[in-house]
Structures are given as C-alpha cells and as structure tokens.
Simulated scan of single mutants.
Amino acid sequence: MEILALGLALLAVALAVPVPMLLHEAPARARSPWVWMVLWQAIALSGGLSMVGSPIIYGLSPFGSSFPEAVGTAVELTTAEDYEALAAMDVHPWHIFALCLGLVLGAHLLLTLARTFYRVRRARARHRQMVQLLSTPLRSPSFGEMTSVPDFDAQVIEHDAPLAYCLPGRTNAGSVTVLSRGLLDQLTDAELAAVVAHERTHLRQRHHLLTMAFEAWYRALPWLPTTRYGREAVLELTEMLADDGALAEHGSDVLLRSIATTSTSGDGTRADLQPGDSGLITGIRLQRLLTRPRPLAWPASAGLLAVSALLLVGPTTLILVS
C-alpha cells in the first residue's frame, strides 16, 4: 500500500508539472487535435485520481494490505469505535492527516465542478434570455437548406462589432448560434456559412462539456501548471476541431477570411461567458489552416491513444487490485 501511494504521488507530480509543460506547445497537436484532446482528458482524470488517491491510500495503509480490505477494516473499526484496535494497528497522526487531506481534496474537486456547472448554467440561462429579448431569427436565402435543419437556430443581435458564438442547450435543438449585425454586414454569404458551420461543430460535438470540466479543474487548483495549460490546450483544441468541421463543408480560404473578420468565442461556456475572445485565434491554429498539415501517422496516433488508455485504466486498476 505504501509503495502504491508513493507511485501514485510520483505520477501525480509528473502529470501536474513536467508533462503539461512539454505537451502544451507540442507542434503535433495541430496535426490530430482529437488525439491530443483524448490525451489531455486522460492526463486530467489520471492526475486528479492520483493526486487524491495517493494520500488516501497512504492513510489507509495500516488497515490492510489492499485498498478494499483497508477500506472495510477502517469503516468497521470506526463504526465500532474500537480505539484499542486502532492503536494496535500502529496508526499514526500522519496517517490520519494524509487520509483527511485526500478526502478534503477529493471533495474540493467535486464541489468545484458542481459549483462551476451551476454557475455556468445560470449565466448561460441569463445570457439566453437577453439574446431572446434583443435578437431576431436569422433569415437568409443563401442558407436555404441550412436554416431548415432541426438542430440549427441562429439569432442576430443588432451590434456593429463582428461577433459569432454559440449558447449550448441540453440538446442540439435547444442550442443557439448568435451572430451580430456587424458580422452579417462584413462577411459574404460563403464566409458567413463557414462561421455558422464552425459554431455548429462546437454544438454538435458538445465542446462545452470539455471546456467546463477543465475550467472547474483550473478553478479548483489554479496554482498547478497542469490546470492552466490544460484549460488553454482544450480551448485551442476545440477551436481546431470546429475548424475541421467547417472545412468539411467549406474551403480553408473562406474560413480564413471569416476568422480574419471576426473573433469566435468557441462554445460560449467560459466562466465569464464573454464572446469575441480573440485569444483563441492562436498562431498555430491559423498556420494549420494555411498549410493543412497531414494527420499523425497511425502508429503515432495509436501510441498516444494507448498512453491515454493506460493513464485512464492504470491508476484505477492498481488501486482496486492492490
């Protein structure tokens, strides 16, 4: 148990500092953003589990040789208030401290996630109400078939600045894409269609769930490099994935012109819900639209996916079967 706790602690440190510092600027992320997205999800989940599990397992180590046995013994002795048996097991204050630390940290992560979800949901609901009051439905003959798709709803707000963002709903049918009048005036029909396709990809792939999880992770532990780099990486990767969705229907030159005109805010789920975040238009994102790099070769993609699976399954398996 103590060796397992040490191993999880080392894994947590590795996933908290050096690994994200190496990955967040890796050029290969532009070649296969979906593979990089899976890897970042695995890093976040495995890092969080290792960070919480290490002190808990160390704190439970005097109660048994395996995690299930230790949990059962600790619950049984605590319920029976058998303090003599606890003393006989050589339970020291640092074991109790480590156990409490892990439980408090786990509760902090879960509560922060719930709080972030509640806050974003309320802010999005208020934003949706304002959009409904201040906007009109998009009607454009050039979209034709696009406006008849059930999961598509676009609203136009009377604002001179070129803006485009989306407000996710519980389903695609309840999601809204918001466009400004300034955007409609500056873009051609083809460029506007590319912007809409970009935003629809955000909605269809439910990017807001990914960004919300990493926003909560950052809010819980803002001093960790992995939470800061992870949030930035996921925001950038969701933009790349949305670009790929738009490129499936439109040319890169059209999408580039639309990006040059407006700043998309991604999925609209940042905690501040501020549209027009130009910081998401990164250099590598524009470069991949210009050069259209080839996806990673299948051995490299398979290797990264295997590492992701190992990160997801490994710590959990070790804890349960130790």
Rank of each mutant, 00 (worst) to 15 (best):
Y165H: 09
T262F: 05
L237C: 05
E84S: 10
Q287I: 07
V91P: 01
L179Y: 11
S142W: 07
T79A: 15
Y58R: 06
W217L: 07
L221I: 07
T116Q: 10
T171C: 05
A302T: 11
Q186C: 11
M146C: 03
T73V: 00
E25G: 10
A87T: 14
P168F: 03
T238G: 06
G7I: 06
E199H: 00
G7M: 09
D151S: 14
Q205C: 13
V321N: 14
L320C: 11
W34T: 11
T79P: 02
T261A: 06
S265C: 03
L320H: 05
H202Y: 04
M240L: 14
R231T: 04
Q274S: 14
L133N: 15
R126H: 15
L110R: 13
A300Y: 04
L296A: 09
A260P: 01
D244G: 08
T261F: 00
H159M: 13
H159S: 10
F67W: 02
M51I: 08
L99V: 02
N172P: 12
T227A: 06
V71Y: 00
L312V: 12
D267G: 06
L11Q: 02
R126M: 14
I319F: 09
A194R: 08
V19P: 03
R270K: 13
L163D: 11
L320I: 11
H198T: 12
A74Q: 04
Q274V: 15
L305D: 15
L289R: 07
T78A: 08
W36Q: 02
M240Y: 06
S263W: 04
R181P: 05
P275A: 03
E239L: 04
H198R: 15
P275Q: 03
S142Y: 09
V35Q: 01
L6Q: 12
L101G: 01
M130Q: 14
P33Q: 04
A216W: 03
G169F: 04
S322V: 10
S50L: 00
V13W: 12
R119T: 12
R200E: 15
A80M: 00
T227Q: 03
L311H: 03
R31V: 03
R204Y: 11
M37R: 15
S50Q: 01
Y165I: 02
M130C: 12
F67D: 00
V75R: 07
V178H: 04
L256Q: 11
V196I: 15
P33E: 03
H250S: 06
V313L: 13
P62N: 02
L10W: 00
T78R: 01
L304I: 10
